[in-house]
């Protein structure tokens, strides 16, 4: 019963924050001379016209959100999913084009993600560099490297607005569910998320990882190698984000546009998804679906209501700000718990 009450309370909290965020989205609509209620309803519901996009976004955001959630369980703020996503996408594209192998593209893309976020993890554990700073600097470096590769080494000689495409044999096939074609990235994503959930909740390592995050001193006194667990959390996170980037290339977009729009913001939005999903795997899945609907829906309604799709960013940002405040309850509870 306590668990049910907890879930209910969290859901009420997120729901309330979402209502305020949407209300502000409605104000934006008024500002752009659109009917607020019709705009909001259409923004959330019109996503159904783009089922493949919603499914794809959900699959990717669930992975990048988990890439934020796992280091947070170990007490680290990983902002680096964005950079690892780029790395995964770039390497998957290169490997896919060169070898034509789907498996190699996914494996090496994932590995590239591991390395990129792993650098920040190593800097934190061995040199004490704040991971928020290092991951953001690495994101920017990867952003410019991505643009460089997209217009240079990976540029398509004929279609100048995008890179070369992954060949057919290295693509992940789509599936047909109830008459609708959707990318099968969602299946890979779901399997991985379930695996992570099992790891966190049912293994000794997962338990110790959470102990490291909840009470560093207690973990140290028990003889847990705190640095190793933190590094591991960042390596796993990098792998998840790298996999997401690779999946997007081999399963959905097949190439990257010259402005990088194909691969941008999945990492950053993952942070919002994780926060809204309260770092819980099921919460993350639900929040991914909601975010994906908002992001896809805001694109559908943009030409209809003449309200920019960035309205969705504003709504998301406000929801996150609101959700940051009531952590007072968690803090008080953990303090009381620590005193027992």
């Amino acid at each position: 019963m306590r668990l049910a009450a907890k879930i209910l309370r969290e859901a009420a909290l997120v729901g309330a924050a979402l209502m305020v965020g949407l209300a502000i989205g409605g104000l934006v609509a008024v500002f752009f001379d659109a009917p607020p209620l019709g705009f909001l309803v259409d923004m959330v519901l019109s996503a159904r016209h783009l089922p493949d996009m919603v499914v794809e976004y959900t699959a990717l955001l669930a992975l990048t959100a988990t890439a934020f959630a796992i280091p947070l369980h170990a007490g680290l703020f990983n902002i680096g999913a964005e950079g690892s996503f780029y790395a995964g996408a770039l390497v998957a594209l290169m490997v896919g084009v060169k070898t034509g192998s789907l498996l190699l593209a996914l494996l090496l893309g994932t590995l590239a993600g591991v390395i990129v976020t792993g650098v920040a993890g190593a800097l934190r554990v061995w040199l004490g560099v704040n991971e928020v700073l290092s991951t953001i600097m690495i994101n920017w470096v990867m952003y410019w490297v991505m643009l460089y590769l997209v217009v240079d080494a990976l540029a398509d000689p004929v279609f100048t607005q995008r890179t070369v495409k992954v060949p057919r044999e290295a693509r992940l096939p789509w599936i047909n569910v109830a008459g609708v074609d959707i990318p099968s990235t969602i299946i890979v994503s779901a399997v991985i998320i379930v695996g992570v959930w099992v790891f966190l909740r049912m293994t000794r390592y997962g338990l110790l990882l959470r102990v490291v995050g909840a009470n560093e001193e207690a973990a140290r006194m028990r003889g847990v190698n705190v640095g190793l667990y933190r590094l591991a959390s960042m390596l796993i996170a990098g792998g998840l984000a790298g996999l997401a980037g690779s999946l997007h290339i081999v399963g959905f977009s097949y190439s990257i546009d010259v402005l990088g729009g194909t691969v941008r913001n999945y990492g950053f939005n993952g942070i919002g998804v994780a926060l809204m999903g309260r770092n819980d795997p099921l919460g993350i899945l639900a929040a991914s679906l909601l975010f994906s609907s908002l992001l896809a829906g805001s694109q559908v309604v943009e030409p209809i209501y003449k309200v920019p799709k960035e309205a969705a960013d504003l709504v998301i940002g406000i929801v996150i700000i609101l959700l940051s405040a009531p952590t007072v309850f968690t803090i008080i509870r953990s303090r009381l718990g620590g005193g027992r």
Binding site: E310, V315, I320
Partner: peptide, 12 residues
């Protein structure tokens, strides 16, 4: 988290 939210909201 509050700061991250502000950054996203500001971009929008």
């Amino acid at each position: 988290i509050a700061g991250l939210g502000l950054n996203i909201a500001a971009a929008g």
